[in-house]
């Protein structure tokens, strides 16, 4: 026989939702909350500067409304970040890498190893504070098909990257 091609039942295929999901590192939540705090502080300062320039401190209702809006937004984003963190997870299977995220708009991206172009490890400023790194896996697909896993310990990110590259080379050798 030149090649064999057995029939496949869709039920027999490995299901993505049954993958072994790994949560992100706990400190990534702290890193995100710090990022949020910094962002909201800048917003507050910008608001104060704007009100000062337009000299509208006299309009009490406007100032109070602005502050209330800012507090509500901060609280909402705080809750979203905390709840959203639990939804973020990655999974490594024998032939592909998965990442899922999203509280309301949930999504899951799967990149097969034999379609990986290259990968990189990124450490942002805030990441460095908490000793974290993110892994970025590039494919040849159009925008939105690159997979990014944030909140990994650097040595872990490096391990996954090495594994990926190893698998990719193996695939090409076949």
């Amino acid at each position: 026989m030149l090649f064999d091609n057995p029939s496949i039942h869709p039920q027999d295929l490995p299901a993505v939702e049954e993958a072994l999901w790994q949560p992100l590192h706990r400190t990534y939540l702290k890193r995100q909350l710090l990022g949020l705090a910094i962002g909201q502080t800048f917003l507050l300062i910008a608001g104060i500067v704007a009100v000062s320039i337009m000299s509208m401190w006299g309009k009490l209702w406007l100032v109070l409304g602005g502050i209330l809006l800012w507090v509500a937004q901060t609280l909402l984003r705080w809750i979203l970040v905390r709840k959203g963190f639990a939804k973020k997870a990655y999974a490594l299977r024998e032939r592909d890498l998965l990442y899922r995220s999203g509280l309301f708009w949930q999504q899951m991206l799967v990149v097969p190893f034999n379609r990986v172009q290259h990968c990189s490890i990124q450490e942002g400023l805030l990441d460095k504070v908490y000793g974290l790194a993110s892994l970025r896996v590039y494919t040849a697909g159009t925008s939105g098909s690159d997979l990014v896993i944030p909140g990994l310990e650097p040595h872990n990110a490096q391990r996954i990257k090495d594994f990926l590259i190893n698998r990719t080379v193996q695939d090409e050798a076949i």
């Binding site: 999203g102 949930q106 991206l109 799967v110 990149v111 379609r115 494919t139 098909s145 997979l147």
Partner: peptide, 14 residues
Amino acid sequence: KIQAVRLSSSPFER
């Protein structure tokens, strides 16, 4: 020819 697969759902879809 597929490079990556993405599954997503909005609250309405879910």
